Simulated assay, not measured.
Amino acid sequence: MENKGISQPSNDSSRCIFFNANSDDYRCVVILTVKRATATFSLIGCLFMLFVVWLLRKYHSLAQKMILSLTVAAFFDSIAYVMGEDHSPGALCNFQAWWLTYFDWSALAWVCLITLNLYLNLVKEMRTDHYEIPYHVLAWGVPLLMSSLPLFGGYYGPAGPWCWITDAHVAWRFGIWYVPLFTLIFLMICCYARIICVANERMQSWFGTFNPERERRKVSLAEEIKPLKWYPSVYLLVSLFPLINRLHNAFYPHDPVFSLTLLHVLSAPLHGLANAFVFGLDRDTWSQLSLTGIQLALHSRLCDRTQIREYHPGAVRYMPADEAGFSDSDEDTNVLFFSPDMTLKDRGP
């Protein structure tokens, strides 16, 4: 959501409102072009993630469903950044601002809940399958509250390359988004630090006679905790430049810096997408996205219609092999393909 206005709006449609310059000023052209390119890239990336989830059937466990929900939130968040250019005050501008705030918050909520779920699973050793509905209530309900407060207060309006909370209500920008954002990022860093410590302690505590299954679990746990440090880091990196730019706008509202604004529009649309990639594309998923793995998965998805049905026996007539037309020279034409990239499919009745 973020990040959004850079100077007081103007009623002159030929003006570049976030630099108080002509609309053909090179700075305005660059900012709007970069904004469109970044938002479009984010949108395409989210579509790719949704395709991977569908292709590899990664929507069965609670963790997979949460990553799917995060990707959906990131997808709709990207649409908000693609919406139009400079909106004049009105219903459409307010709608874009509300949409942007809602799905920015929704993506953040899912990242926090994924972190909480991992903490409960690994540190507290709790099963969390029954938390699915409460997770959805929090992830879609809290953003509704946070995005509606500025709407009812009339604080939305033109705010630079997109609509958001106007320059006249800087306190609301920080209260609604930036203060909660960096508070939650700090809590996630603490949470992942605790998760990594607990995982390392458990790996070092496994002593005794050699046990292949225990060693396999030890190696698996070591691989799983390696990327944990990247989860909050990604959100921190894509939030840093918008925060710096917003702080500068708060102190110097009529003197925007082109470089900060450029870095702002480069990183702002990438919140949800970056986390969807980090959470969703683990080592196992990447290994299945080889050419062979994709071909097998597509064949399984689109062509395989094998079903197990109940067998009803009927009359059977036996005859000699030569009469039936079989001989020892007949070759077996059935070929069984195996690939480490292939994911087995559950077959229902």
Rank of each mutant, 00 (worst) to 15 (best):
N3C: 15
G5Y: 08
I6R: 12
S7M: 15
Q8Y: 14
Q8K: 15
Q8I: 14
R15Y: 12
N20V: 00
D25R: 09
R27H: 13
V29D: 14
L32W: 10
V34N: 00
I44L: 15
G45Y: 15
H60M: 06
K65S: 07
M66K: 12
V72Q: 11
A74E: 09
F75G: 07
F76S: 04
D77Y: 03
V82S: 06
M83Q: 02
E85C: 08
S88H: 11
L92E: 10
A97C: 05
Y102S: 03
D104S: 15
D104L: 02
W105T: 00
S106Y: 03
S106D: 07
A107V: 10
C112W: 10
C112D: 03
C112S: 08
T115L: 04
L116F: 09
L118T: 00
L122D: 01
V123W: 00
V123I: 11
K124Q: 13
E125R: 14
E125I: 00
D129Q: 10
D129N: 11
Y131K: 03
I133H: 04
Y135G: 01
H136E: 03
L138P: 00
A139D: 00
W140D: 01
V142H: 05
P143A: 04
L151A: 12
G153L: 03
W162T: 08
W162H: 05
C163E: 00
A168E: 11
V170R: 13
V170A: 07
R173I: 15
I176P: 10
F182Q: 08
I185F: 06
F186S: 14
L187H: 06
M188F: 01
Y192T: 13
A199V: 11
N200W: 03
E201M: 12
Q204C: 02
S205A: 14
G208K: 04
G208F: 05
N211G: 04
E213W: 06
E213P: 01
E215M: 09
R217S: 13
S220T: 15
L221S: 14
E224D: 13
P227M: 09
L228I: 06
L236C: 13
S239F: 05
F241K: 07
F241P: 11
R246H: 10
H248E: 11
P253H: 12
P256R: 05
L263Y: 04
V265D: 01
V265K: 02
L270D: 09
G272R: 06
G272K: 07
N275Y: 04
N275T: 09
W286R: 13
T292C: 06
G293N: 11
H299V: 01
S300V: 01
Q307T: 07
I308L: 12
R309P: 00
Y311C: 08
G314N: 11
A315K: 02
V316D: 02
Y318E: 08
Y318T: 15
D322E: 10
F337E: 07
F337N: 04
T343A: 09
